[in-house]
Structure formats: structure tokens, C-alpha cells
Design a protein around this nucleic acid. Structure first.
Length: 580
RNA sequence: GGCUAGGUAGCUCAGCUGGUUAGAGCACGUGACUCAUAAUCACGGGGUCGGGGGUUCGAGUCCCCCCCUCGCCA
């Protein structure tokens, strides 16, 4: 049975440009998105998998200043670093874009203009602290001073970290810029654009209500923001910054908005669309190539759009970005695609605490790859993905899972059957013999397991899918153990040949099924079996006959080595503190 | 302080709209096997499902109160 070929648009929340991401970030969006993209491709669907770096905003400017580089240069370098790490983890983006791209500038301004024409953008005058020496407005958290409540000297403009009291920047005693330390601060009036989300609330609420199949985590966060307190609020979408998309359109300054840029949370999700346009540009295609993914009026009607993100990103993806899309669609003409499914994740904790980018706590993507190949991390992270609750990374658990699941169960299966065959029959799939009840039972069990695995993957139930996959690997060991071809060989070599033939075919099947989780190992297995046949087993009995008698193979090297106790202790020590 | 999500075997976690003796993997114990990365396979021990009330013929699963984690927000 060949399933219907469908079109899937998949986006991962875009990582902020400022620094290298830790494993918690990775497992919260990019990695599960990659798993799903790989799976859907393997099933024969047409997939567009998009990610990018989120490059605008104050933290990027400050990080660049700290590095002593112009912000554009800093972002370009960090984008290259993140792209390299993404390749290292085998994240199979069709395009890894940049929110600072020309495409995103144009599209962000397009959406702003369209929303403005629909009277969904208003101008609001507000007072903000301006630093004369820095020549810029300071967001609350970039103002420091003495807390009027407890006397703590490094209280921030929004809150005192010492006594937790909420503050207004004007409350602080001796306020100063956290950027330069300058005390020449004054309150100035500034005007900003606001997205009038409040007026879109009924449509957004109805849309959320229609998503009955979404994870509770996703809809509960959305509802909270929609209904709590005064309900959904209008949101400022501009900032007084130099680095970003100018708050202009078609070259003409928005009235009174000269020198301002759009706020990252307005332009960042638009980058999903822009990155797809960047993809079309990079592959030498015209606008129609990307529009058929995003424009319902230009062929995207049959696209299923799935977003992956950590729970901290849910409000923007359930409310703000949809507000942009819904509002723009009111203009008529263009009909932009709204998300169909949001898969959100909780947090991954690290050894009893939190992963923390700002504190440098935990294991970061570059460090992880420096000690072990991507597959080891992919397997552990995905099989422990924080789907229903926060989950916990410990080195003991990591060592145990990798050693048991990858080395002992899968790796050793491949090793034992290929070496057995090489020793008794040579390095080719042996001929002769027929399958008995035991073999037919195995084939039936595998077919059942594959069906369950597919169901879990279709549902994006990642931990369950990992369990199912592992169970399929176990079936091979169970079979070998009870069939015992090494014993049978002594009295009935022909029968042992049939048993071996089936087992060798399992290796290829495992490679195909496991590819979304562990792509490198899957490639090694296929290379070892000397086949390029990576067809999904729509028909399991047929798939287990793919390697015909006489088909040559090479006995693969050790697929997964074990993590020793010494290594574990060493890493535990090395990553216990704070990244310098 | 408000809100979200949780508190289930030593560990990491499953348990949908309430229903027979509460499950998985790991760890642990015993046995089998020797093809294999001292791997694998079988069997087994182990939980008063955070605490207390309540609804029900019946609750880990619904209601109320309390305690404790984690996160978000003001």
C-alpha cells in the first residue's frame, strides 16, 4: 500500500544569534523538527524544512559590542557557526536562513504596511529612559541602580533581583546605563507602533478553539494569554534601535518612525516565510517556488504546516504571528498560510538544575559534538524529549541509554549477525532454506512494530516512537537467541542460511527505520550492506527480502562504542561548572 | 502573591473519555546461550500511584483541602 504523497511545511523555532545553543534548546525545537522532517521524507512526502537565525534586537547589539565587532559582522560570523553546528547534528534544513536577510526586510515591511492599511497598527507615545552618552533608549533591563526597597546596588530597571520587588526605572536611586555605566539618563518621549491584537482577539480565539488536536501545553498557554487579566493586549512592534528592519515601507519612512526598527518578535516569525524565499533564491528558482508553500492563493492549499518550539515561544506562535497573518489576510488578494499544528516542548533540565545560556550552565552544542558523534546525542535527546513534562539530563542516564540501546541492542545485533555470516557463509547473503513458523512469526511481529512506530511518528509522539523503534531492534536479538543459527548450522546449514538471510535483511530494515533518529549510523549500516535501497517498508515481508541471496556485504565497523565510566566521570566534572 | 505543569517501582518515565491481580526501559537477582561490542535471551523480586477527605458498585484516573517541586507572570 503506497500512502498518498502530501506536502509538509515544517519550521523549527529560530535560535537567537547570540551565542551557541545548549542541548535544551536543541531538543526543544530543531531536533524534533528534524526527526519529523526526515520521517516524512522517508515516507515519500514532499517536505520543506525551514530554520534560521534570529538576529535582531538589543542582545545581538550588546554581544557584538562585547566582541568588539560591528553587529552585522558579528551576526554573519555567528550564523556561520550555528550553521556548522546544525550540520554537525545532521539537522536537515532545506534552508537555514537569516532574519537579517533582504528578503525578511522586504516581507516584514510588507506585512507592516498591509496591517497598517487594515488599521491594525496604531501609534502610541510613551516615555522611556534615554542614555545621552550611549545615544540610545534603554530597555528596562539595561538600566541599573540602587533598589529603593532593599538597598541592593545592582537592581535592574524592571525588578530587583535581590528582594524581587517590581520596579519602574524611575524608582531606582542613582540609575545608570548597564551598557556604558553612564549616569546621564533622562526620560524622553518616544513613539512606537503597536499591533492591535486586541481587535483580532475574537478571530484568534475562535481559531485556537478550533485546534482541538493540539497539545494541551500549546492551547493552555494560548488561552491564558488570550483571557487572563485584561485579555490579549496590543503589542509594541517597534524599538529605538539601529540594528533591524527599519520601520518603513517602500522606501518611505512611516510617519514619525524614522530611526526605528521592528521588534524582533514581529520580524522573527516572518523569517519562516522569508527563509523559504531565501531558499528559492539560493536554488535559482522564482517566487512561485516558495509561494506554493506559503500562499494559499498560490497553491499552498494542500500544505500541512507544523511548527516546533519550546514552551517559551508558544505565545508568539499562537497569538502574535497568527495575528500578523490573519490581519494581513483581511486585505484580500494574498492569503497566507496559518499553522496547522504546533508541537511544543517543556524544558530539559541539567543534572539537578537548569540549562542556562546566560550562566553557561550545561552542555552546549559545540561541546557535545567535541566528545561524541551526533547520533549519540540525537538518540538520547529524542528518546527523552520533554514532551509531557520537563525532563532531566544526567550523565549516568546518558551513559546507560547510549550503551544499552545503541551499543548493546542495535550495534551488537548488527555485529553478531554479520560476523556470524562471515564466519559460516562468507560476506554475502546466503541462499537456500525456507522460512518456518518462527520466521513468519518474526516477520509478523516486525510488521506490527513498524505499524505502531509509524503511528507514533505520525502523531509526533517522539518518546513513544523511540520506544517502538528500540522494541523493533530487540525483536532481532530475541529472534537470533531463540533461532540460534550457530547451533542449527551444525546439523542443518541450509536452515541456518535462511535464518541468517532474514537477519541480514533486518539490518537494512533497521537502517531505514532508524534514519530519522540516527542518520549517520543508518548510513553506515546501508553502506555495510552495500545497498542504496532505503525505501520505507510499506510492505514488511517484501522489505525483508530486499537483500537477495548472493548479495555481497561488508562487515561494518563497530557502530556505537560504549561510554566508559572514566569518560562519564570526566565529562561530569568538566561540565559541572560554568562555561567560560 | 497569581497562574501553568507536575509529585506513580532505586533511576528515567507510560498510564485516553474512572473498571478485572498498576506498566515499560534501566538498575538488581537467578537461569539459558556462546554468533556478538563481558554482548544477548528467559524468568523473578520490588510500588498502600505526595497526604487527607469526598462522589461512586468501583478512583492512580473525577471533586474539595493541604504539602512539595519546576517554570511563567505581576
Amino acid at each position: 500500500m503506497v500512502p498518498e504523497r502530501k506536502r509538509h511545511l515544517i519550521t523549527s523555532a529560530i535560535p537567537y544569534i547570540n551565542g551557541i545553543k545548549h542541548l535544551g534548546n536543541l531538543v526543544g525545537s530543531q531536533l524534533p523538527a528534524d526527526l519529523y522532517a526526515r520521517y516524512l521524507r522517508a515516507r515519500g512526502h514532499e517536505v520543506m524544512f525551514i530554520c534560521a537565525t534570529d538576529e535582531h534586537g538589543t542582545p545581538a547589539e550588546l554581544a557584538a559590542a562585547k566582541a568588539g565587532k560591528p553587529v552585522a559582522e558579528y551576526c554573519a560570523e555567528m550564523h556561520a557557526v550555528q550553521a556548522e553546528l546544525a550540520r554537525g547534528f545532521r539537522l536537515s534544513f532545506d534552508h537555514f536562513g537569516r532574519s537579517s536577510s533582504a528578503r525578511n526586510h522586504a516581507l516584514t515591511q510588507y506585512f507592516a504596511r498591509t496591517l497598517g492599511e487594515q488599521e491594525l497598527i496604531s501609534e502610541v507615545a510613551e516615555s522611556q529612559v534615554f542614555s545621552v552618552d550611549d545615544n540610545r533608549f534603554l530597555p528596562d533591563r539595561y538600566i541599573e541602580g540602587t533598589c529603593p526597597n532593599c538597598g541592593y546596588e545592582r537592581a535592574r530597571g524592571d525588578q530587583c533581583e535581590n528582594c524581587t520587588k517590581q520596579l519602574d526605572p524611575t524608582d531606582l536611586i542613582n540609575p545608570r546605563s548597564a551598557i556604558s555605566g553612564s549616569t546621564r539618563l533622562e526620560v524622553r518621549e518616544t513613539r512606537h507602533l503597536y499591533l492591535r491584537q486586541r481587535s483580532l482577539k475574537p478571530e484568534i480565539a475562535a481559531w485556537i478553539d478550533s485546534k482541538t488536536d493540539w497539545p494541551v501545553l500549546t492551547t493552555s498557554i494560548a488561552r491564558k494569554w488570550l483571557n487572563d487579566g485584561d485579555g490579549l493586549q496590543d503589542r509594541g512592534i517597534t524599538r529605538d534601535l539601529a540594528w533591524g528592519v527599519p520601520a518603513q515601507f517602500d522606501g518611505a519612512p512611516w510617519q514619525g518612525m524614522e530611526g526605528k526598527v521592528f521588534y524582533v518578535w514581529f520580524d522573527a516569525p516572518i523569517e519562516y516565510i522569508s527563509a523559504t524565499a531565501e531558499w528559492a533564491d539560493a536554488t535559482g528558482q522564482d517566487d512561485a517556488a516558495w509561494q506554493r508553500w506559503w500562499r494559499v492563493d498560490k497553491g499552498a492549499g494542500d500544505v500541512t504546516y507544523t511548527e516546533f518550539m519550546g514552551k517559551d515561544n508558544v505565545p508568539f506562535h499562537t497569538l502574535s504571528f497568527p495575528a500578523t497573518i490573519i490581519g494581513a489576510n483581511r486585505a484580500g488578494g494574498a492569503e497566507w498560510k496559518l499553522v496547522d499544528y504546533i508541537k511544543s516542548f517543556n524544558y530539559l533540565n541539567y543534572d539537578g538544575g537548569q540549562f542556562s545560556t546566560s550562566q553557561g550552565r550545561g552542555v552546549f552544542m559545540d561541546q557535545a559534538l567535541s566528545i561524541l558523534p551526533a547520533d549519540y546525542w540525537r538518540w538520547w535527546l529524542l528518546s527523552h524529549a520533554p514532551e509531557s513534562a520537563d525532563s532531566e539530563f544526567t550523565w549516568e542516564n546518558f551513559q546507560q541509554s547510549v550503551n544499552k540501546d545503541l551499543a548493546d541492542v542495535l550495534g551488537n545485533f548488527v555485529s553478531r549477525i554479520t560476523k556470524f555470516c562471515r564466519g559460516k557463509f562468507g560476506e554475502a547473503v546466503p541462499a537456500g532454506g525456507e522460512y518456518g513458523p518462527q520466521e513468519l512469526a518474526l516477520i509478523a511481529a516486525v510488521a506490527e512494530g513498524v505499524a505502531s512506530y509509524e503511528n507514533m511518528m505520525d502523531a509526533m509522539s517522539i518518546r513513544r516512537a523511540a520506544q517502538d523503534l528500540r522494541a523493533l531492534w530487540v525483536l532481532g536479538n530475541e529472534y537470533l537467541q531463540s533461532a540460534a543459527p550457530w547451533t542449527v548450522f551444525k546439523t542443518d546449514p541450509t536452515r541456518a542460511a535462511a535464518q541468517t538471510r532474514l537477519s541480514l535483511n533486518l539490518v537494512r530494515l533497521y537502517a531505514v527505520l532508524s534514519e530519522p533518529f540516527i542518520p549517520d549510523a543508518a548510513a553506515s549500516m546501508l553502506a555495510g550492506m552495500q545497498t542504496t535501497n532505503r525505501d520505507w517498508p510499506e510492505d514488511v515481508p517484501a522489505a525483508l527480502a530486499a537483500l537477495a541471496p548472493g548479495h555481497a556485504f561488508t562487515t561494518p565497523e563497530v557502530l556505537f562504542r560504549k561510554i566508559t565510566d572514566e569518560e562519564r566521570e570526566d565529562w561530569q566534572k568538566r561540565f559541572s561548572g560554568i562555561r567560560s
